[in-house]
Simulated scan of single mutants.
Amino acid sequence: MGKLIYEGSVSAEFEDRLLAHIQFVTQSKLRRGEPFILTWTDHLSLGGGRSSVWIHPHASLLFKFHGSRVPELNPHWLTALSSAANSPRGLYAVREPAPPRPPHTVANASTTAR
């Protein structure tokens, strides 16, 4: 589990793969000067509930990953997370979409029947 530390005092744990996707979306939004809300569900050991922070270009953010391997980013997941970040609700963890299935092809009868 990695951590996102906001302003040196607020932290949230995320799986490294999700954290890498959140980092990418955050960087993209902040490069464009677009502040947004980031919301997560607090662990039961912290009392449960949820927390939100206002992410803005001057915020101090630390993305601390548990592992050293950089995960491959799923463009479909980035799109889903970006859509959430652009909504009034803000960025929150959404499930990773399944990879799209290749189109189903029907074998040509003339090539299969011999």
Rank of each mutant, 00 (worst) to 15 (best):
L30C: 14
R31D: 06
R31K: 14
R32D: 11
G33H: 07
G33V: 09
E34G: 04
E34T: 14
E34F: 06
P35T: 05
P35G: 02
P35F: 00
P35Y: 04
F36M: 12
I37M: 10
I37C: 08
I37H: 07
L38I: 03
L38Y: 02
L38T: 00
L38P: 00
T39L: 12
T39F: 01
T39C: 14
W40F: 11
W40N: 12
T41N: 14
D42H: 04
D42I: 03
D42C: 09
H43V: 04
L44P: 09
S45I: 12
S45Q: 05
G47N: 09
G47D: 08
G47E: 09
G48F: 03
G48D: 07
R50Y: 05
R50S: 14
S51C: 08
S52I: 03
S52M: 05
S52G: 05
V53H: 00
V53Q: 02
W54R: 14
W54N: 10
W54M: 10
W54I: 11
I55P: 03
I55H: 01
H56A: 14
H56Q: 15
H58D: 12
H58Q: 13
A59S: 15
A59V: 11
A59D: 03
S60I: 12
L61W: 02
L61Q: 01
L61N: 03
L62R: 15
L62I: 10
L62Y: 04
L62S: 13
K64E: 13
F65K: 07
F65P: 06
F65G: 05
H66F: 05
H66Y: 06
H66W: 09
H66A: 13
G67D: 09
G67R: 13
S68W: 05
V70S: 02
V70I: 11
V70T: 08
N74P: 15
N74H: 09
H76S: 09
H76M: 04
W77G: 05
W77E: 08
L78I: 15
T79C: 10
T79G: 05
T79A: 13
L81T: 01
S82E: 13
S82K: 07
S83Y: 02
S83L: 15
A84C: 14
A84Q: 10
A84D: 09
A84N: 07
A85T: 01
N86H: 11
N86Q: 15
S87P: 12
S87F: 06
S87A: 13
S87T: 10
S87H: 05
